[in-house]
Design a protein around this nucleic acid. Structure first.
Lengths: 127, 127
DNA sequence: TTGCATATACGAAAACTATCGTAGATATTT
DNA sequence: AAATATCTACGATAGTTTTCGTATATGCAA
């Protein structure tokens, strides 16, 4: 899998809706997006058509109103996004990134616990 | 401070050099960038001029060869990058981001220690 | 079945980014 | 001083992304 997944800004907005809702019509996606910014319906439509050409989504065209579905998972996009900022703003240091993230966006107690547990799994190799 | 800091891809490359080296001439920045991709000198120049217009850098024009300096810090850019991916691919969950980051890019033992120490500071409020 | 609402397709403009050539100014070398 | 090298400024082009208008098809309601 050599393919780089690099959705544009606008494409990411659409993917977010698809990730949240699963299957969507253009109308549904647009309604959702229109909550945050105002743009025309055909703009969203066009974008989704382009995403289809790129293979970012698939669609069921058996009915008049097509139904779209994301073909890239949120997890893949997450990995990609992390890789990218790690190699640009962070100097490849995962620790820097993690500490910055925790410092700026205070995590809840339970989240902190979860992270510590996660870390322990590396520290004590369950002999 | 309402201003959104959104350097483009190319601008980020330049900022990286400025962050690493401090003060730089266009030539210095270009040499560095040319190590990874080949593009013309004037391309780098033009980009840096645009960055100046945008207020991303400042420059000393007292000598023929101008000297540039970043006006956005690496830390600011880091915060911005984190905010952005937190609100797009990650659903606002810092913990998800942290765990993903640690999972994909294995951290060294010392890094893990550093992170754990950091976490402890929240857990035990030093009564 | 006629008309209205809503879909998709498509072309093209607008906005933004990256790239480079060239002109003219300024320094350096011989 | 003349030739050469190096710099900035600037315009133009190409590529990408976003935006929208319009044409046309499809379903639904009166």
């Amino acid at each position: 899998m050599m393919s780089e997944i690099k959705p544009t800004e606008g494409e990411l907005e659409i993917l977010q809706v698809l990730w949240d809702k699963g299957l969507c019509t253009v109308r549904e996606v647009h309604e959702e997006i229109a909550k945050n910014k105002d743009s025309g319906y055909t703009t969203t439509l066009k974008l989704m058509q382009i995403m289809h050409e790129k293979g970012l989504v698939e669609r069921n065209t058996s009915t008049k109103t097509h139904v779209y579905k994301a073909l890239v998972s949120r997890k893949e996009a997450q990995k990609n996004a992390l890789d990218k900022i790690l190699n640009t703003v962070f100097t490849g240091s995962t620790a820097d990134l993690v500490i910055q993230a925790l410092g700026t966006h205070r995590a809840s107690q339970s989240e902190i616990e979860a992270i510590k547990n996660y870390l322990n799994q590396f520290e004590n190799p369950e002999k």
